[in-house]
């Protein structure tokens, strides 16, 4: 097993792909935390804890849930909204949950508006601008998610979570696999259950993402 751990950055300008450092993907029914394979139960707890600890916990829904391609996508979108609403109910004063869309993958030059969207080609701009210190990607095609996760790990100190509908992401600090409406709802339930038990890091030196 690799000694490498997928930790919040900034790692360096071009962080290695976690897979190239020996990190492997979880099997069905498992997840990974920092590159170590673990049970899904433990991952729900850790993801909820990270959300509740963060100053700006953020969900980044991608095109696969933002656009109503089919009934399943629309249901997942409703679950994402429920998770966000739960997060808003469960945080303490001073914490600022956000829901920022990644509507598509076009490299929008010369600039995007980081207040209203995130782009996989320069996701660090949205992280920096909103001082996001914990984020979760959901509904983003794997290649674009990997690109974003690596850029974020390379240039920011943001904690990244992937709620992946396929096999998971090594480049996230925490990754679920086979995401479904039920899994999103279960994460929301875990956030609710841990409400008030986690101390937010509002006063710590690492507030917000660094550049």
């Amino acid at each position: 097993m690799s000694d490498y751990r997928v930790l919040p950055g900034p790692e360096h300008f071009l962080p290695p792909a976690a897979a190239s450092m020996g990190i492997s993907l979880p099997n069905p029914g498992e997840a990974h935390i920092n590159g170590v394979i673990t049970s899904e139960d433990k991952a729900y707890e850790e993801a909820a804890r990270q959300f509740l600890m963060a100053k700006v916990p953020t969900i980044f829904p991608g095109p696969l849930v933002l656009w109503a391609w089919n009934e399943k996508a629309a249901k997942k979108a409703t679950a994402v909204r429920h998770l966000f609403n739960t997060l808003k109910e469960c945080v303490q004063p001073g914490q600022k949950p956000m829901l920022i869309p990644m509507p598509d993958y076009r490299p929008k030059y010369p600039k995007i508006n980081p207040e209203v969207e995130i782009n996989p080609n320069h996701p660090n701009l949205t992280i920096w601008h909103n001082k996001i210190d914990c984020c979760m990607f959901i509904g983003v095609h794997c290649h674009q998610a990997n690109l974003s996760l690596k850029i974020i790990r390379g240039g920011t100190s943001c904690y990244t979570i992937a709620m992946c509908a396929q096999a998971g992401h090594e480049d996230a600090m925490l990754s679920f696999r086979d995401a479904s409406v039920e899994k999103i709802m279960r994460l929301a339930d875990t956030v609710k259950r841990l409400k008030g038990t986690v101390q937010p890091r509002l006063t710590s030196a690492k507030n917000g993402a660094s550049s």
């Binding site: 829904p61 933002l66 656009w67 629309a74 979108a77 409703t78 920022i100 869309p101 969207e117």
Partner: peptide, 11 residues
């Protein structure tokens, strides 16, 4: 079509 639950956050 945009998912109704997330319509308001779309640019």
């Amino acid at each position: 079509q945009i998912s109704e639950a997330l319509y308001d956050i779309m640019p």
